[in-house]
C-alpha cells in the first residue's frame, strides 16, 4: 500500500526511485534476514525508525551501488594514503 512509482520512465537507480517504507511491520524479509529490533520502534511515527546495528550490518555487502550524487573523492581531497591496499 505504501508503494507508488511511475513505471513509464525507466528509473536510473533504485536508490532514488524506491519509496520510503512507512510501516515496518508490512515488510517481510527473506529467510535469514533479521528485522529491526521491534522494541526500538514501538512508538515510531511518520516513518521515523531506529535501527540496531545487527540489522544495519546486513546491508553492507548488498548495497554496493555508488551513490550517483557522490562527487569524485580526489576533488574533495579525500585520497587514500596507501593506494595499494585500497581498491576503489
Amino acid at each position: 500500500a505504501s508503494v507508488k512509482r511511475d513505471i513509464s520512465v525507466p528509473p536510473p537507480s533504485a536508490l532514488f526511485t524506491a519509496c520510503f517504507i512507512e510501516n515496518l511491520s508490512e515488510v517481510e524479509y527473506p529467510e535469514g534476514i533479521k528485522s529491526p529490533k521491534a522494541e526500538l520502534n514501538a512508538n515510531a511515527k511518520d516513518g521515523r525508525f531506529r535501527y540496531d546495528r545487527d540489522f544495519l550490518m546486513q546491508f553492507m555487502h548488498i548495497c554496493r551501488e555508488k551513490p550517483p550524487t557522490l562527487p569524485p573523492l580526489d576533488v574533495l581531497g579525500i585520497e587514500p594514503i596507501d593506494q595499494s591496499s585500497f581498491a576503489m
Binding site: 536508490l15 554496493r64 551513490p67
Partner: peptide, 18 residues
C-alpha cells in the same frame, strides 16, 4: 561530501569512501 536519508544510500556511500 554528500547527504543521504536511507539505510541503502548510507551503505552505497560507505562502500565507496576512504
Amino acid at each position: 561530501v554528500i547527504s543521504f536519508e536511507s539505510v541503502e544510500e548510507f551503505w552505497g556511500l560507505y562502500n565507496h569512501i576512504v
